[in-house]
Amino acid sequence: MQRRIRVSTWIIDLYSVIGVIALLSVLPLFISSYYTRLVAVGILYGIAATGFNILFGYTGLLSFGHAMFWGLGGYIIAIGLIKLGLSFPLSVLLSLTILVLVALGAGYISLRHTEIYFAMLTLALSQLAYAIMLKWRSLTGGDEGLYGIPRPLGTITHYYYLILLVSLITLIVVWLVLRSPIGLAFQTIRDNPGRAETIGYNVRRLRLLSFLISGIVTGIAGIMYVPLEGAITPEALYWTFSAEIVFMALLGGTRAFLGPFIGGIVYVFIRDYAMDITEYWLFVMGVILAILVYILPDGVVGTIYARIARLQRLKR
């Protein structure tokens, strides 16, 4: 898997995170509450895609079932809040605990393979989770899902800042992990698993760790999303949403740390716009995705980074 050299440096990534979050934190002052809500959805999609990219962009494993983490995180917090009557923090804790267990189990099963079989296993596991959410009526409400989920902090704007805070912490933690020796080990495995093995890495265990972190990060986005929307249906786990997460990550660029995050936000706005202009908005999304594949295979952020890097080289 030889690809172009990494052009972003760690410190640029960190500054970009802080810059983007700062920008997002003043945004609600200028936009209507609908757009605040939309940006909040975009941020959470971005976090979900960032989680996916830990596994894909940094560890070299294409998961086709990340909707499972998003959906399970969402379902369990909904169950905690409205079925068990737990407080918000306790529901989050419950959701995280179950996510860890599921991620470990799913990772253990699917990491017996790599490449296409890994993708198929993650797909099968998420479809199984979808079927369970669909059929376990008493707990999940079946096809209609769960609704009337209360939002902590009342207003959209307040909750928006909670989402932003959680996202900032999540992004920084992911950033710290990825630049730590563990993160560098992930990338060694991505580039050459055989070599990683020979220089003494426990490849299987490291992949599992990456899978775990990846699943939890995507799960956190799902946890935060459900109180925002107030409802969750089994569609949140269906395989097409997994594909949408892949779409978001590639839209932003999987080779830039902030790529998937920006990709999630851009995705939400493109979709919102496409839905406004035409009932055939899926067609528009398909065309945009196709254009992206041919013209911007590095994604929006990846391409910008590459441009900057080229400018810097020219200056020297």
Partner: peptide, 20 residues
Amino acid sequence: SKDEADRQHVIDNIVKMVKD
């Protein structure tokens, strides 16, 4: 109008019609 078939965003879309 908004499309109800966008099942994951039914509430978003209703809010959009009213607020925005």
